[in-house]
Design a protein around this nucleic acid. Sequence first.
DNA 1: GCAAGGTC
Length: 773
Amino acid sequence: MRRLIVCEKSHAARRIALILSNGSYKTQSVAGTPVLRFAKDSDEYSVLGLRGHIVELDYPDELNDWEKTPPRELVEAEPVKGVDPSAKKIMRALRETVAKSDEVIVATDYDREGELIGVEALEHAGSKLPVKRARFSALTKAEVERAFADLVEVDYKLATAAETRQYIDLAWGASLTRFMSLASGQMGNDFLSVGRVQTPTLALIVAKERSIREFKPIPYWVVGADLRRGSEFKASHSHGKFEEKTEARGAASRARRTKEAVVGDIELKEGVEYPPCPFNTTIFLAEATKRGITAAQAMKIAEGLYTDGYISYPRTDNTVYPPSLSLKAILEKLRRSDLSEEAEEVLSQETLRPSRGRSFTTDHPPIHPVEGATKSELKGGRWTVYELVTRRFLATLAPACRSKKTRVELNIGEEPFVSEGDEIVSPGWRKYYPYYRVNEVSLPEMKTGDSAEVLRITSAEKKTQPPSRFSQGTLIQEMEKMGLGTKSTRHEALQKLFDRRFVKGQRIEPTESGIAVISALEDHARLHDEYKITDAKMTAHLELEMDLIAKGEREQPDVLEESQAMLVDIIDVLERNKKEIGDDIRKALKKQRSLGKCPQCDSGELVEIRGKGGDTFAGCSSYPACRNAYPLPRGMLVLPGEGSCEVCGAPKIKTVSKGQSPVVLCIDPKCDGARKQRLVGKCPDCGGDMISIQSRKAKRFAGCTNYPECKRMYPLPQRGRIVPTEEACDACGAPIIKVWQARRKAPWVLCINMDCPKRQEKGERADKKSKNE
DNA sequence: GCAAGGTC
């Protein structure tokens, strides 16, 4: 018999062919797609790897003019299935192979989407062949062999459940996206989007922002002591937070009566910190985003490292290494990496006992290195991510970190104080995973009855802090907790919110338009509480319906009809309030785009305008009545800068360039205030000021303010904050500057003239340095 | 030019 095995991806196809053929399969190209062939037990096998969902749902072309199809019509329109244009060849290969087969075995991932991926591809290929299903939970020899020895039926109900999700996501997403965009006049590139995952995620960010805004800080007081016994150390009042200032003062003044602290009970404890758990996608992203990479970037790099054979599959929920994974073999491979010494140390342990996390799934193993690598073969971000994954892997196999914890009670003027020491005795896993800062505190030797000199008693007012904003990492963790998105899609939903300018910042905050969209939907799209579309519960409700379909307790048409009815009701309410919603969003966008009030006319706002050549400038919104305009710096993000210039009263802007801390300066480049901030030094030719200028290609250079009379210019380091020194180079007369760069402790001091005779003397080293900039 | 879900 000729049997066709359909897999979810090419990697899985290769693996399955390898296992079933004992390594003897041959690769043939069918319509440009590899099909793996082998014979076994008088059967001929063809194995084909799909690429996820190669069949996609979309509305027919005639509904694609947003202005012509009212959103509510979209709700009941029938979407059509089409082949992903980039997967046409795979579909052709599937058709051709189906024609030459007698039976199909669906061997996609063992989950709801996997069921549909196989079924929809075969359906679209027009297959009439008998179908079987292989269900395996890991691509290991034993598991794959068992699954193929024990073939089952395809679960069409499960596939239908996944298909229902597609229909509902499309209908809600497309109709509400179009409604919001039409209502606010945001068409083309600037459309406003709504979706089952992205909108509740945005709502989480907005809710957080509201709670920060509503937060009322409560003051409290803490009393501390600076002490000395040989060396200096600190203690704090045992009461902790004092709610009343008078109480804190009383305690402090009683403590101040004496210069001697008497040591009371001493408690000694061994602190044990167990190694962190293996990486699943969520934890990996949380850690990667702490290194300053966005979640989407981290995922992209990880996918590249996976396809290049450096790390394992990066999309997994699993935090427990399966027993089939040879941890020792991986460590041995790391011998050829730049982390070979660390790997060797971990290998030298008598036994390898990996840590394990709470989520145990069988989809894929936790993310781990599969090959050694050196810093020189992996550049920049790729090395950062590889090193993170590898160090995490090493850490999960390393011993616990052990520390000496000391708790010393002290009596100062009858007031109880406590001093806590924490010293690492053996770093264990921390040695291999040095990303967390540890605050070690060492205390001088003391025993009960000893005394210490009181240097100072402090009493400080503090305030309770508002909740902190999400970072990309903490938000993705929160999304996982709320059931929003999947391991493969959360970073994409988040990136969308940034791309649509609904949110901004490293500490993520909503923009005006983000808040306006959520407010509009909360106010007008909450007909049915269980279908409040800004609420993460909507996903939970959908999950429930899909489970019912999978169990055969509900039918797809009923669920779709019910969902459509609700959506139509919601769109009706939205349509009735269309003008108000549109006005609110427009107002928010105007505020969001404003760089500040125009200082020349009282009515206008300065907004960023794109000129003919792609250059941007700030122009007054009252144009042509007011023609006030300012050039804006090129190649960087320009944001409103809060407040107005102390020198000229024009608004301030904030410029953000990659890898640099933001700079706030006057919007008017001719203003003395702005000029002073951009000053580089004195021009050696004419004595005028040289200021930092952004070129057309966004390169930074120093130009003379007497341009065009004086054409003196120098290239500048592209990164870092430039501080003039008032000094001139004794060799060439060019200004000497200091450059503060991120993560460097000391500034870099240099003459800005690249052709300076002194620099030539220094030879290669200086040359190299400048090339790096 | 819409969503979310797979995968590259």
